[in-house]
Nucleic acid binder design. Sequence first.
DNA 1: CGAAACGTTGACCGTTTTCAATTACAGTGG
DNA 2: CCACTGTAATTGAAAACGGTCAACGTTTCG
Lengths: 199, 199
Amino acid sequence: MIEIMFEQLFAGISGARVIAYAADEAVFRQGGPAEAIFQVQEGAVSMVRHLADGSLLTLATASSGETFAEASLFAENYHCDAIARTRSEVLSIPSAALRLRLNDDAVLALGVARFFAGQVRELRTRLEIQRIRSASERVLAWLRWRARGTPPCLEVADAWSRIATELGLTPEALYRALKQLEKAGAIARDGRAIVLPLH
Amino acid sequence: MIEIMFEQLFAGISGARVIAYAADEAVFRQGGPAEAIFQVQEGAVSMVRHLADGSLLTLATASSGETFAEASLFAENYHCDAIARTRSEVLSIPSAALRLRLNDDAVLALGVARFFAGQVRELRTRLEIQRIRSASERVLAWLRWRARGTPPCLEVADAWSRIATELGLTPEALYRALKQLEKAGAIARDGRAIVLPLH
DNA sequence: CGAAACGTTGACCGTTTTCAATTACAGTGG
DNA sequence: CCACTGTAATTGAAAACGGTCAACGTTTCG
């Protein structure tokens, strides 16, 4: 869903390209000119801020499908480093042309606002799910959030270990939670598909 | 910061008013017409979705200063309930007038986009901090994020117990983490002020 | 003054992490 | 076609950590 919106939004902007980065390579540096807005195609990119005492603080990590450096639409310079965590491919959308158009084109600006509003909603939900302390309740909440249809079900495309990271759990804890939920009848598994029976 | 931006943004919109809600009272209901966008002044309001099987899923909880139902700018109906968790006061900004203006006024639309982009950044960082498992490292990351100046320091305005909630910890765990950080020399405390010594 | 919320500490318990080992599985090259 | 290699999935056991409960001191405010 995010990808589609993102692609639609910026379909009219020329100069988009996909760039590959090695692990630990910088996509951009704090203080550098804010030239583009990005979407991770493959891999993961962390936003890292250099603090006054020389230490580092990770502000965010964007994985496949997620965007980063949206603020480059509104700022002159980047306020953190973007470092590829692993070998990554990143779609880069130049922001200069976009910025120009945004000042005249209310519809485009509104589209951007709408896109960000959607991200806000998604992030809030992820945050709410993160605060659930019990591993299995957290996993169940995540599944219920992602599931579609009647009965609600979903195909898990990513590796479970990656999902464990998104959930703030260790892979082991996730496996155990899934098993427990299955045993309790809260979910049914068939390969990578999960079904949530209606009570 | 969020409050200021929010107030600025919607300063020109008429019909804003503050409404008080009792605990468990609904600000709006899923399916109802999306008539306003809100900011919590006092208390806390949860967004709750009704799922197919009749159960509930909490999507977000907005506390003092935070906004909710931004999506009412883009949708006809609310997609969840908003329920006051405690006695709350909520600033309500009618969205119909706003929607009209947004289609013509690119600057306002861009301001809204910028506002949401800021929220996205903040939420991403909170999410990143939430995944830190160790209580004291989580607290330290939060402090480093919020601290300003040299040496980095911050005044804690809210009650610690509220901050504990924001951090996804119990108050007890937070007190212990603070004590531990202080003993380790990672922070210095003076009443409600926290200083982060430069190494 | 008294009530209510906040702050602080201690002890115990349960869950998750951690570490380690094993199995399944996909891709690769002999 | 099969051994080989790396990654993901799974299970077990022990330790660590934060949650919970309980008690008490402190501050705030009507």
